[in-house]
């Protein structure tokens, strides 16, 4: 069972307290953007995900904790969390992920 660091509680808690919530940094288009979007672009936003092998930016929910959603970098091969961060923060750069790995 994984230990996950909640950036809001600022604590490592067992996986049981959390729920996975899909890929991160997929921003919902606002009403103006939606109106402009082709069906193809909309279905890409809705359904197409990267499904990468390696460091994956994804959303987690501290369901049985502080109730907050946050983002994480997790390696889909090793299942290791490199870092977690608040949703308002930008996706970490490759460099930041590398630094976090060496910590």
């Amino acid at each position: 069972m994984l230990l996950i660091h909640c950036p809001h509680c600022n604590e490592e808690r067992p996986e049981l307290e959390f729920a996975y919530a899909g890929e991160a940094h997929i921003v919902r288009p606002n009403e103006a953007e939606q109106a402009e979007m082709s069906d193809a672009d909309w279905s890409k936003f809705m359904f197409i995900r990267d499904n990468i092998r390696g460091d994956h930016a994804e959303r987690w929910w501290h369901a049985h904790g502080c109730n907050m959603f946050f983002n994480a970098i997790r390696n889909t091969v090793t299942d290791k969390f490199t870092m977690t961060y608040k949703v308002c923060q930008k996706r970490p750069t490759e460099h930041q992920i590398k630094v976090a790995k060496n910590d």
Partner: peptide, 13 residues
């Protein structure tokens, strides 16, 4: 509840 929290926290911030 989760659906509402999700949108409130991450989209309609």
């Amino acid at each position: 509840y989760r659906h509402m929290e999700d949108y409130l926290q991450t989209e309609f911030t």
